[in-house]
Design a protein around this nucleic acid. Structure first.
Lengths: 340, 340
DNA sequence: TTGTCTAATGCAAGCCATTGCATATTGCAG
DNA sequence: CTGCAATATGCAATGGCTTGCATTAGACAA
């Protein structure tokens, strides 16, 4: 049944069009080096046979693939999805294809995926966050595959990166919260282990408290996985033990929305009894009820610029450069002055 | 500066380990065909040199890539993201890698992406919906690339598919709405042009109305793009002209949430003044306020099963089979009996 | 020790496109 | 018509890996 005749090759096309394989190849890659008449003849043959060039052979012969790989923790997160979509669109404009792989936040899987994409001949790689084994950077070096870090900007790191300063972004938000009179804070964080973004955000809150002369022991932190239910559970614990925080900051909007839902279930009024603050400003934030005060991250812009820089580097050899983007505090309904 | 020494090859490893390239190749692909001692020696050399096999060469020589491609309309849609994540996880279990490409709902881009993934040597393809040019199916045939359709199940189509019956799913929902006494319905649809899912859902509503002896002229339909704001705008128009519908069904949850938001802005009470119904049951649905009545689609299950079927087919030649999954009506707060 | 058989390894022919260089064709001035 | 330049085409080497088949080494029995 599955009697698959082998796919036609360049050679088959050449025979059908009665030219050499070189000519067919040029028709596809440099049409203006070929006489018009020949060109049409060849194109007809290609169409006729349903020919499609073999990527492997092409990559091998041409020593480049016009492919750029992106490795993200998860696709289920709207913020990565959005950034990637923009990244891909930008790459398309430059004639590149994007390959995505996701790691479920697991460093071992990430390493595997990096190797796999490199093996596939990715001309360059987009990575999220900078924290990974030195081995991996060394490997990329040996293989001659340039990489760009995103979602992060930190003067201290040496790799080129396009992103924002997670610590400062969260610090500004926390300072705003403190301005509103809150002194006992809660923080529902993503797992900080091997996640520099999450760790930096936590640092940001602490820094804000210090600069306001608050005691960081008045900050209760819960680390949890990504998900609405996880946010809800974390909120539960925060409200359970000891003196309640009057404002709960969250590492991302999804956690915040979970907290919001749980607050409603517990009949804790937001923002009257407690303020809830998110991070990312995904769509969820504005349709949540009450609508979520959060930190807007320019995901699309980040994806677009990363795509531009990377494509430019691979095509024209422009050196990779770092770029710091700005975040913005979006005040909506879930943040209010503390009750006195 | 960018003095990249060419990446090490099989040959380099062979020399370093003092064996033939064939042996190195076997170490990587069939370790048990190699003497232990040799194996360790080779592995040491590989590590030492930072060797990584060249995918193109490998693909060409082995005539398979262990890669399965997935082509989706957009990554920004949580429902695709979720299905894909499950699909990928399943593929990983079988030793396959997933390649994703998105099309922005544009058939021309889709065709391009299909060709591109095939050219990259995808061993099989996952496609969304069945409606596309015959040319494309013919191309896949010539290339000998099997494909599986998802998000859709329709006895009338010949391609193997794993999905649900969009028409029936929406029809059941509409019948439930009608049971609640609604007779003037609105439908905020995704663009139906070249989108069989959207078209089928519209049909489903009409069928439900007919079977309840309602006049389909009492159905106002607005087609719009994917997005919260688009849903909001569409809701506006539905409420603007002529007799208002008492229930507004939506082609997906995102549109529904947009409608919900606009209703709040317009001070139209949901569900007292108007019921709003979504489709997909993404997380958004349960955190929306009021929470959204919607149709639950088993995205994860669909992704998982599609992955299984496709992997099994490529690895073991098991014929592709179709599978119909069931959807479920999730009653939440946005649907209520019509006011009398 | 020798002979047999199996396990381990090596040889070398592909796989399919690209591309530098050589050759053939064409157009046009003289 | 010739001759030359410019353009179009073809030849054949190349890239890195897999794998069928041939060969060698090693284990074991006699």
């Amino acid at each position: 049944m599955n009697l698959k005749r082998p796919a036609p090759t360049l050679y088959d096309v050449a025979v059908a069009a009665d030219v050499s394989t070189a000519t067919v190849s040029r028709c596809m890659n440099f049409p203006d080096q070929v006489a018009k008449k020949t060109y049409y003849k060849v194109m007809a043959a290609i169409k006729e046979l349903g020919y499609s060039p073999n990527f492997g052979a092409k990559a091998m012969a041409a020593r480049r693939t016009n492919t750029i790989g992106a490795i993200i923790p998860t696709m289920e997160n709207a913020m990565f999805a959005r950034g990637l979509e923009a990244f891909q669109k930008e790459l398309r404009l430059h004639g590149f294809t994007m390959l995505v792989a996701s790691t479920s936040y697991r460093p071992d899987v990430e390493e595997e995926q990096i190797r796999s994409l490199v093996a596939r001949g990715a001309d360059a790689l987009l990575l999220i966050g900078h924290e990974r084994e030195a081995d991996i950077y060394r490997f990329l070096e040996t293989q001659g595959v340039p990489s760009l870090i995103t979602w992060v900007f930190d003067e201290k790191i040496t790799q080129p990166s396009v992103g924002f300063d997670n610590r400062v972004a969260m610090m500004e938000m926390a300072m705003k919260v403190i301005e509103f009179g809150h002194t006992r804070l809660g923080f529902i964080s993503a797992i900080t282990f091997q996640n520099d973004r999450a760790a930096a955000r936590l640092d940001g809150i602490k820094d804000a408290m210090k600069s306001a002369a608050l005691n960081t022991s008045d900050l209760s932190v819960i680390e949890t996985n990504y998900g609405i239910d996880e946010g809800a559970k974390a909120f539960d614990s925060l409200m359970g033990n000891g003196p309640r925080p009057t404002a709960v900051l969250c590492g991302n909007d999804v956690l915040a929305v979970g907290a919001l839902r749980r607050a409603r279930e517990l009949k804790i009024a937001v923002p009257q009894d407690v303020s809830i603050i998110g991070f990312d400003d995904i769509e969820l934030a504005q349709v949540a009820y009450p609508s979520l005060t959060t930190v807007r991250v320019p995901h699309r812009d980040m994806g677009r610029r990363a795509g531009h820089i990377l494509a430019d580097h691979v095509k024209n050899g422009t050196p990779l450069k770092s770029l710091q983007l700005k975040t913005e505090i979006i005040l909506r309904e879930t943040l209010a002055p503390v009750k006195t």
